[in-house]
Structure formats: structure tokens, C-alpha cells
Amino acid sequence: MSRQRSMEAILASEYVSIGELTRLTGARYSTLKFYTEEGMLPFEQAEENLTRRYLREATVELIFRIKQLKADGLSIPQIKAALKEEQ
């Protein structure tokens, strides 16, 4: 098991892991994994260890946008459509 990076190190990084995104946003790991699998959270994959890396600032903003749309009562298909329109 790998050691967790400090919040200071996470906030200084351009890229973060899905676990670090849970710490930054308060979202559940399973929720972020679902959003990733649904194509709602873009990521890069490092070939050497197959770890998904997310752009920290853009992804945190996107997660909070998804949370807001969900709070507004939108379904996942509606959220996906709204995100696509915003691009």
C-alpha cells in the first residue's frame, strides 16, 4: 500500500489520483470511478504503472459542477448532456 501524499503536496500538483480527488472534493471513490467510467471525468493514463491521473484544477471544478447539476435534480444522462453543451 502506498503512502498518502500530504494535502500540501496534492494542492501543489498538476495531476492527482482518484483517491486524492476524494480528499479534495468529499465525493466517494465509487462515485468518481462511476463518473470516470461514464466518460464524465477525463483522465490520462501513465503507461509505466497504468495509474489514471486527473488534471487537479479542472477535474475538481468539474466534480463540483456535476454535484451542482445533481443537486438541481438532473439525471446522469441529463448531466452528461449538460456537460457536453458546456464544452
Rank of each mutant, 00 (worst) to 15 (best):
Q45V: 14
R56W: 05
E37T: 00
T22V: 08
I66F: 05
G26L: 05
E61V: 04
A82L: 03
L74K: 10
I18L: 12
K70Q: 02
F64T: 01
E86Q: 13
F34D: 04
I79M: 06
G73L: 05
F34Q: 06
A71F: 00
N49L: 05
R3Y: 07
P42R: 15
Y54P: 11
L41P: 04
S30T: 09
Q4N: 08
R52I: 09
L62D: 05
Y54Q: 07
R5A: 08
R65F: 07
R5V: 04
S6V: 02
F64E: 02
T25Q: 04
Y15F: 14
E8D: 14
R56T: 07
I18S: 12
S17P: 02
E44W: 11
Y15I: 10
Q45P: 01
K84H: 12
E85W: 02
Q78S: 08
A58D: 14
T25W: 03
A27G: 00
M1D: 14
Q68R: 05
R5F: 11
G39I: 04
Y15W: 15
G19S: 01
F34M: 08
E8V: 13
A82T: 11
I79H: 10
L62V: 04
E20Y: 12
E8R: 15
L62I: 03
E48I: 09
E61T: 02
I63E: 00
S2H: 08
F64L: 05
I79Q: 12
N49S: 12
S17T: 15
L11P: 05
E20G: 09
F43R: 09
Y35I: 01
Y54A: 07
Q68H: 11
L24R: 02
M40N: 09
L21N: 06
R53V: 12
E20F: 10
F34Y: 07
L69A: 06
T36P: 10
F43P: 02
E48C: 02
S30V: 08
T31R: 03
G26Y: 02
R23F: 06
E38L: 15
A46W: 04
E86A: 15
G19V: 02
Q68K: 09
I10F: 03
F34T: 11
L21V: 09
I79V: 15
Y35R: 05
S13A: 15
M40K: 07
V16R: 08
D72G: 11
L62R: 15
Y29R: 09
G26T: 02
L69M: 13
L24D: 00
T36C: 01
D72Q: 14
G73K: 00
F43E: 03
T22A: 06
L11A: 08
Q45H: 03
P77G: 06
Q4D: 15
